[in-house]
Amino acid sequence: MNIIFLSPHFPPNYYRFCVELQALGATVLAIADESPERLRPELRSALTEYRQVPDMEDYDALLRACGYFTHRYGKIDRIDSLNEHWLVFESRLRTDFNVAGIGVQDIMHIKRKSEMKKIFQAAGIPVAQGGLIPTVEAARDLIDRIGYPVVVKPDSGVGAAKTFRLDDDDALARFFSDKPPVDYLLEEFVEGTICSFDGLTDREGHPVFFTSHVYNQGVMEAVNEDLHVSFYSLRQLPPDLQAMGLKTLGAFDVKERFFHFEYFRTIDGRIIALEVNMRPPGGFTLDMFNYGNDIDIYAQWANVIVHNRFTASYDRKYHCAFVSRKTGKPYVHPHGDVLQNLGERICHHGPIDPAFRLAMGDYAYLVRSSDLTPIREAIDYIQAMA
């Protein structure tokens, strides 16, 4: 099986996907702009061949690299990166080389929030009121109908970049005076808790693994207010959230992919769809899958790709939490005290890549427990500030 992996060195933990593919006998071919010498040894050893390109944003360079691989190794069976940034490039390459997976005809349904909203609505899944705002007049018309506060976000974007809450006409005017030259979506501000439905499907679209996470706040607040972040996995999924997640899987026809769906749980208990992401959740969440279930999700993904089998059994035996800190904040408990006092509850800790600093933080702790109370206590302890 010939598999091309784009940018396999980033995020830093993604090298493990290539290692597991190679262990199953796949021919693993990679393209990135990093020099080969700077790739970690485990990744270099897993790659059958690596092509460095000067600029990963240059589609012609990617096209030539894939053409070279096709000439040398034959038909390409899969092209992937598991990275939001490269989804459009992947889709173009799949279409040009007739490779299974999401192609150019489908990519905008999962990249543009306005298109996601149409699919949600067609499936009967509740969404926030709103729409595209090409002009300030269009924005005012929507606000006349739904009222302040509202949220404005790029129609195609990730990580709450350039996403803002607007509370009045002055804020709306300021936004349009400095609006980036991209399509924007305006929606009613939904008050509630963000929760997710995350997992992996096989080639037929059956969910072979799924779980859910509850977030202490939205990424928009973390980015715009420079807040630290925490979220934790659930051992038992609420039936309505699980049903909504499975309905979303069917609506978007997710096959042989990781997925990360986000919803609001409103104060009165309703579930409102926020967005879909056809890639793993960010940060250390893949490792949270592992620590929460005592599995190896990297190996299981590779097994699904190569053999269409998920062989691990899981019962969500632990809650697992991601708890971050941001440099410069006056935390009460130093790092050494966190490790000493939380002990075995800490299953992993380490720095976060600077590229994710605004949304995720500078340093993260993964905490697990079979009970939720120790998880919440650990979050409070790690993030306590003077």
Rank of each mutant, 00 (worst) to 15 (best):
M1C: 09
F5A: 10
F5P: 00
P8L: 03
F10P: 01
Y15I: 13
F17C: 05
A26G: 08
L39M: 05
P41Q: 03
E42S: 11
L43M: 03
A46G: 03
T48L: 07
Q52N: 00
V53F: 01
P54E: 12
E57L: 13
E57Y: 12
D58H: 07
L62V: 08
R64F: 02
Y68F: 09
R78L: 15
L82H: 12
L82E: 14
N83E: 14
F89G: 07
S91E: 03
R92V: 08
R94M: 01
F97I: 05
N98R: 10
N98Q: 12
G103I: 06
Q105S: 15
H109D: 15
K111M: 15
Q129R: 14
L132E: 14
L132P: 02
I133H: 07
E137I: 09
A139V: 02
R140C: 09
D141T: 09
D144K: 10
I146C: 09
V152G: 06
P154F: 05
P154Y: 06
V158W: 15
F164W: 12
D169W: 06
A171Y: 01
A173G: 09
A173T: 12
P180H: 04
P180I: 08
P181R: 02
V182N: 08
D183I: 08
L186D: 03
L186T: 04
F189M: 13
F189L: 14
F189H: 11
F189I: 06
G192Y: 04
S196F: 02
T201R: 01
P207H: 04
G218W: 01
D226Q: 13
H228F: 13
H228L: 10
R235Y: 08
P238T: 05
G245S: 06
L246D: 04
G250W: 02
A251P: 10
V254A: 01
E256H: 05
E256R: 02
E256T: 09
F259T: 03
F261K: 02
G269C: 04
R279S: 11
R279N: 12
R279L: 11
G282R: 10
G283D: 11
F284V: 10
Y291A: 10
D294W: 00
A299G: 11
A299I: 00
A302P: 11
N308T: 08
R309D: 12
F310S: 03
T311I: 12
Y314W: 15
K317N: 12
H319K: 06
H319W: 03
A321D: 01
R325C: 05
T327G: 09
H333K: 03
D337F: 05
Q340C: 08
N341Q: 12
G343P: 05
E344I: 00
R345C: 05
H348V: 10
I352S: 07
D353N: 15
F356Y: 15
R357K: 15
G361H: 06
L366Q: 11
L366D: 04
V367P: 01
R368G: 00
L372W: 03
T373R: 10
Q383D: 07
